[in-house]
């Protein structure tokens, strides 16, 4: 889809929180389908299906090593057939499940040869039905058919352009580019679909545009790039041109399930009245970030057992709505 000429960024307010401890434990990633079902992948292996109203629609998968189970799941994404693709870094396995948890296929061999995997983390299906996998301990990205046949791969251990150090999250942009959270290099790298280096974004640190072990990355139809800056407990937003735009540190309110739980538990209600509650709003080790077609941003808030949701508000602008880019900043506003 062609990009608009420009954007009026009207806001990006916090929308709501879904999930709670025991419902969505240690969430590592989420996927959102066209029916607005949110698939929350927990580190212990279960996938909890939540509605946007925070109703539990079902739980599929679960912990274990049998087919359809997960030991150390990392990433979940919907493929073009609307099936769920899940990586497991303990089993070196990629599993495709229906939304009801039926196993469609599994594949993955441990090792370092072409097509083999050593701790696969991020998975990102593209529009053609291929699947990119962040092959963490081989420090590379590999592209497979949906059935797991090797197509191509790139990357080696290092910190130069195009090199990787324990990559984690992956995303495919709407134009087919591949974005990788280059975890141990504290940056995001963009590649062509064939693996040619396009650019790197970020460096180690806690300032604007800096990262501390970024785990997740995604893009949206405006070309914006979102990075789960895990070690800094935040998500950062960048424009397609790598300009730092905004950050999200967490604004959580109690989810519906959390409110229902608290209304029947007198002691924790008193303890909450004695405590400073501000920290409870904040993100703790967010390990991923995803956006749906409506511009809602979902952040699995790993250490707080929930998903925080924000709503992107932008108005597309035509040439009459925004002047051409300027070479330099200016203080003149009219």
């Amino acid at each position: 889809m062609p990009r608009p000429h420009g954007l009026l960024r009207a806001g990006f307010p916090y929308l709501k929180t879904i999930g709670m401890r025991r419902v969505t434990n240690t969430p590592v990633d989420v996927a959102i389908d066209g029916d607005e079902v949110v698939y929350v992948l927990g580190r212990a292996g279960e996938i909890t299906k939540l509605s946007m109203e925070d109703d539990i629609l079902g739980v599929i998968a679960g912990g274990g090593s049998d087919e359809g189970k997960f030991t150390w799941p990392v990433s979940i994404a919907l493929d073009r057939d609307e099936n769920l693709v899940v990586s497991d870094e303990a089993l070196n396995r990629i599993t495709t499940l229906t939304k009801d948890g039926e196993v469609v296929r599994t594949w993955g061999d441990p090792g370092s040869a072409e097509g083999q995997l050593d701790r696969p983390a991020g998975v990102a299906p593209d529009a053609e039905g291929h699947v990119y996998v962040a092959d963490t301990m081989n420090h590379r990205i590999q592209k497979f058919t949906a059935d797991g046949e090797y197509i191509l791969g790139w990357g080696r251990h290092g910190s130069a352009e195009g090199e990787l150090d324990m990559p984690w999250g992956l995303a495919v942009g709407d134009e087919g580019s591949v974005y990788a959270a280059d975890w141990r290099n504290d940056r995001v790298q963009k590649f062509t679909p064939e693996g040619d280096f396009v650019f790197a974004l970020g460096a180690g640190g806690s300032g604007e545009g800096q990262f501390r072990r970024p785990a997740g990355v995604t893009t949206d139809s405006d070309g914006d790039i979102y990075v789960a800056d895990t070690g800094n407990n935040r998500v950062q937003q960048f424009s397609e041109e790598r300009r730092y735009v905004d950050r999200f540190i967490g604004d959580a309110t109690l989810s519906k399930s959390a409110r229902e739980y608290m209304l029947s538990n007198a002691k924790p209600n008193r303890l909450r009245e004695m405590a400073v509650l501000e920290p409870q709003k904040r993100l703790r080790n967010p390990r991923s970030v995803k956006l749906d077609a409506k511009g809602r941003m979902f952040i699995p808030d790993y250490m707080s057992f929930r998903v925080q949701v924000y709503q992107k508000e932008v108005i597309p602008l035509g040439p009459s709505g925004i002047i051409p880019p300027l070479r330099s900043p200016t203080l003149q506003v009219t």
């Binding site: 709670m20 401890r21 989810s255 959390a258 303890l271 909450r272 409870q280 250490m303």
Partner: peptide, 13 residues
Amino acid sequence: FTQPIPLYPHGHY
């Protein structure tokens, strides 16, 4: 010590 936020619904603090 300061009262920590209790375990439920969002984990230990």
